[in-house]
Structures are given as structure tokens and as C-alpha cells.
């Protein structure tokens, strides 16, 4: 999809992002002969059970032991393999330091793919909902951080991640995801995309919040507000050029993420524009709190990250326009 194409329509539910990832990885195995997939006894949850079935010889079981798994990925990469570590986001975070030292510091070509991020986890509750992972992994020097928005983009991002030489942390998702993009969709690491154009405010989102931001743009439209929506699937390196352009053209922004407002997409956006293009920014995300049990949409409403909250944040941002001059 090109930058100025027509607004993407929110479609029917497609696969979950984890399913899309698992299937994409399975289909790509033939093109990447050194690919191996590492699992910590959650293959059915992360979607890589598809891969295990199709390519059992390239599937390595590590048991429920994420620290060893992530550091071992560093060793596998060191001898020329292309390891993709899979697990639940919250448990992969316990191997943060292994990702830091044995993967990123060594500049290994190893990938970490985390399912079950954010409130999207749902009923498993607060202990299982990783709301800090983007902040943590983004802080590791040289770590690329990706959070695709729909099954099609997940498929493309999986290929891009394997083609990219370097450490990557990628979020998938547990719940059925909206289909936002058609077969002509394009994905490039480090590039944001305007998925709906507008002049009054820019809504910058990643992951499940892209669909909610598109919905918010429709709500705003009924009030006569023309909102632009940017899908920022790569959180690091962030597309600063696009963000500066949006800041200049719309004069205010809202960020939306299924993550703590501290350290995630919102912080990355603010860092990108603060110096050269300061403008009012409102942050939609978890307000420095943990999640709890409930269905994903219920939780999103409860914690204030659904479309009406994004729309309300947009109105606040617009009202503050000019306040920084």
C-alpha cells in the first residue's frame, strides 16, 4: 500500500497474528536452509506447531527454560544457523539479559518472536500480559523491534525478519486479528505507512491498535475531524522522517499501543519529533499499570485503549495545537 492510498477498511476477523506467523514461517522454511525454530513448550500457543509438523528436523525443543533457549540461539547463530526463538512475550522477557549479551552484544543474526503481548492475551490475566516488552527490547542497542498490525503484514514481516541480518524482536498476537491489508500490501523494516490520510491529527499505532485507530478515525470523521492514521509496524528503528512529516502536516499526534505508555511506541514517537518538530502528543496505552483477566476487547475498553479513547485523545491533542509555540 502506498503512503497516500485510500483509507484501509476494517475487514472481518482473519487469523490471529500468531497463526499467521506460524504459517508464514512454515512456508518460508525452504527458502532459508539454515532456519531453525526454538520452542519452550508453547508451540501450540505461538503458532509454530505448524512448523514443527512440516519441518520436525528444524524444530528444537528447549523445554520450559527460556534463558537457556535465548542464549543457545546466540550459539546457534554463531555457528551459522538462523535461529528463531519463539515463546510468550512475558516469559521471553525473563531472558532479557540473554538477548542483550548473547544475541545483541555479539551482533548475532537471531530472531525473537513473542506471542501473547499486551491485553490481547485476555483471560490469562495480568501475570501473562506483557506490557513492558517493547520498552525493554527497544533499549537494547542494535535490536530491531517490530509489531505488525494484521495477518497479511505478519506474513510479510516474517519474511523481512528472516532476510534482515541482525537481531530482531517481533510481537505477534493471541486473538483473532482484523484483516486490514490486501494482497498488494508491502512491508519494509523501518518504514511507517500512512494507511489513512488526514490533515487535522496523526494517529500513530502499532499492532492491534492500528485497527482501533482506523476505527477512531471514522468516529472523528463524524465530528468533522480529518484524522491521518500511520501504521508504525517498526518501532525501532522508528521512521523519524515520516513522523516529522506528519508532525509538520497535521500539527499534533496521538500514539496508540497495547503496552505501557512508558518506553513503548509513544516514547519512540516523542523522541523522534521532540527536537525538530515539537507538537502536542497524546499517549494511548496502559497508564503504568498491569492488566487483569477479561476478554481482550473488554480489557481494551476497561484500560482505555479502544477507538473511543483514541478519538478522545485526538480531540485533546487538537485542542492543544499551538500551545507549544
Amino acid at each position: 500500500m502506498s503512503d497516500n492510498s485510500a483509507p484501509a477498511l476494517i475487514g472481518t476477523s482473519g487469523d490471529s497474528l500468531r497463526e499467521a506467523f506460524g504459517k508464514a514461517l512454515t512456508n518460508l522454511a525452504g527458502e532459508f536452509p539454515k532456519l531453525v525454530v526454538l520452542d519452550a513448550d508453547v508451540a501450540g500457543g505461538t503458532g509454530v506447531h505448524h512448523f514443527r509438523k512440516a519441518h520436525p528436523e528444524k524444530f528444537i525443543q528447549f523445554g520450559i527454560a527460556e534463558q537457556n533457549m535465548v542464549a543457545a540461539a546466540g550459539g546457534l547463530a554463531a555457528v551459522g544457523m538462523l535461529p528463531v526463538v519463539t515463546g510468550f512475550a512475558v516469559f521471553l522477557s525473563r531472558a532479557f539479559e540473554q538477548a542483550r549479551l548473547s544475541i545483541a552484544y555479539c551482533k548475532r543474526n537471531a530472531k525473537i518472536v513473542a506471542s501473547h503481548p499486551g491485553l490481547d492475551v485476555g483471560p490469562d490475566g495480568g501475570s501473562a500480559q506483557a506490557l513492558e516488552d517493547i520498552a525493554a527490547f527497544r533499549a537494547i542497542p542494535g535490536m530491531t523491534v517490530i509489531s505488525p498490525a494484521d495477518p497479511k503484514e505478519m506474513e510479510l514481516a516474517t519474511r523481512a525478519m528472516l532476510e534482515f541480518d541482525g537481531p530482531v524482536y517481533m510481537r505477534t498476537g493471541r486473538s483473532a486479528a482484523k484483516r486490514l491489508f490486501g494482497d498488494d500490501h508491502r512491508f519494509e523494516i523501518g518504514k511507517g505507512q500512512i494507511v489513512r490520510d488526514g490533515r487535522d491529527v496523526t494517529l500513530v499505532a502499532c499492532g492491534v491498535e492500528v485497527a482501533r485507530s482506523l476505527e477512531a478515525a471514522e468516529l472523528l470523521e463524524t465530528d468533522g475531524i480529518d484524522a491521518r492514521v500511520v501504521n508504525m509496524a517498526t518501532i525501532k528503528p522508528i521512521d523519524a522522517k515520516l513522523l516529522k512529516q506528519c508532525a509538520a502536516e497535521t500539527g499534533c499526534m496521538v500514539t496508540a499501543e497495547d503496552h505501557n505508555v512508558y518506553g513503548g511506541l509513544g516514547s519512540a514517537v516523542a523522541e523522534a519529533v521532540a527536537q525538530s518538530h515539537p507538537c502536542p502528543i497524546e499517549f494511548v496505552g496502559l497508564n503504568d499499570t498491569f492488566g487483569t483477566s477479561g476478554e481482550p476487547d473488554e480489557l481494551a475498553a476497561h484500560f482505555g485503549i479502544t477507538a473511543p479513547f483514541v478519538a478522545e485523545a485526538a480531540r485533546r491533542a487538537i485542542a492543544r495545537k499551538g500551545s507549544l509555540q
Partner: peptide
Amino acid sequence: ETSTGSLGQGFSVALGMAMGM
């Protein structure tokens, strides 16, 4: 061969190397 300094990690990295070989 690999950066170390955080105890325990080098052993896992060596394991990954053994597996990969």
C-alpha cells in the same frame, strides 16, 4: 567465540554451538 561476563550464558551459548554443529 562469544561475549561472556554474565555467568551461565556462555555455557548455553556453547550448547547452541554444539547443537548447530
